[in-house]
Write a protein that binds this DNA or RNA. Structure first.
Lengths: 228, 228
DNA sequence: TGACGGTTGGAATGTCGTTCCAAGCATTGG
DNA sequence: CCAATGCTTGGAACGACATTCCAACCGTCA
């Protein structure tokens, strides 16, 4: 299991060179620490080098480029989120649990959601897809329908991830975010009142809804469609 | 209606200054043209200035920053995609038509999908949300359930948009993309064979499936869940 | 006609990802 | 025990980018 090291890397001896060799895991772990503390804008090859007490060039010996680094970091987070054993649950409940595990880690660390939606082909996404699919089999969904069903749930999770990550990035405070969303809706409504009747009726829900509950309801809705 | 101008902006007289004033619409239109030709990486304040026959600084008089520009560009594209009248359709078919309209324009212009998932609070997203919701009302969905249902469909569209945009960006050629996806799946499978049984069973579907059909099936699945 | 507010657009700034390469260490062969 | 080789280090340099700055310029209105 990958262990995220929270403590700062070894201090550089005031001499010339690093005392111990760098490793890919150390680089990724330090990157995750920075991302969790300062968000995606805080992660720079310079800040990362500073935390690792080295220079920017050294990092490229263990990581291909920044995209590779971000993908690996997101993969670690998703794997950790899905490491909870859900085998004792019924298939439907297991799917909901997996989805909520992903939601929760993105809620806590928005950069994971941004990274997932930026590069959905990475192993993290495949892992989610596989977990969903395995439980669909247990749910008794016909073989042919399993692929469509798994894709649908995965796409929904991905969209919610992008939505949630973007919303949190706007404002950490929940109340302010709700205000912002409703303000955006109100602006759209005001722009031409006739062409957005649904937004007007939903103005209250837009300001007061709970994101996690909404997400859970969405999963249930799709599950109902899958069960036919 | 916003008209995308395909032709190049007026050539700068070899004298000193632009002959006619710039406008916000001209800037956005030129940005869309560049994005459609060269993708997101092709849009730079320098390339944009060159096409408009001006300097980078002048653009900032009509646009706040690059995010503002991208949001406005995506908004134009989505509005154009949803301008087709779907009133004659039954509510369920109308929802599917709206979703497929969005899918098609992202399929043709991947940068729209990237931008939507990067900033889902922008007017474009609200427009989609509103169109979906209006048809839910016509579908006879109870008031309370409409919000959850509309959010679910919108999140699914957003996730599929990110997925599709990323896939197309990998390789314009469809066959190569399928190869890449299956290669990624195969790599994940190979990494630990026991923990990805679903991916193994779905290997065939991963390589051969049609994205648009898969998307349409997902919408139908969710619609079935909504109808209860 | 003269002054003024807003527009223009070329230059400059600061930050970033990435590359380069001289200097160091470890490992291997003699 | 030593020298040669190959990989790692990390500071400096490069090129591209978004954004800011400001002097020259224009139309407008007094």
């Amino acid at each position: 299991m990958f262990q995220i090291c929270q403590d700062r890397a070894m201090e550089k001896k005031d001499g010339k060179r690093r005392d111990k060799a760098l490793s890919r895991d150390q680089v990724i772990s330090a990157a995750i620490a920075i991302l969790n503390e300062s968000g995606e804008s805080g992660l720079t090859f310079r800040t990362l080098a500073q935390r690792l007490a080295t220079g920017p060039g050294a990092i490229y010996n263990h990581v291909q480029n920044k995209q590779d680094l971000l993908a690996a970091a997101a993969d670690v987070m998703i794997q950790s989120a899905l490491s909870v054993n859900r085998d004792e649950l019924a298939p439907g409940a297991a799917i909901r649990a997996v989805a909520l595990d992903v939601f929760d880690i993105i809620d806590a660390h928005p950069w994971v959601g941004m990274e997932l939606s930026r590069a959905p082909w990475q192993p993290a996404m495949l892992l989610i897809f596989d977990r969903i699919g395995a439980n669909l089999q247990a749910l008794g969904v016909p073989d042919m329908a399993q692929f469509h069903a798994a894709s649908t749930v995965t796409n929904f999770i991905l969209g919610a991830a992008a939505q949630q990550a973007a919303a949190i990035r706007l404002h950490a405070d929940g109340a302010q975010r709700a205000t912002l969303l409703s303000a955006a809706a109100r602006a759209a409504i005001h722009q031409d009142k006739k062409s957005s009747p649904f937004l007007q009726r939903m103005a209250g829900n837009l300001t007061e809804h709970d994101d996690r509950e909404q997400f859970s309801a969405g999963v249930d809705l799709i599950l109902r469609g899958i069960r036919g």
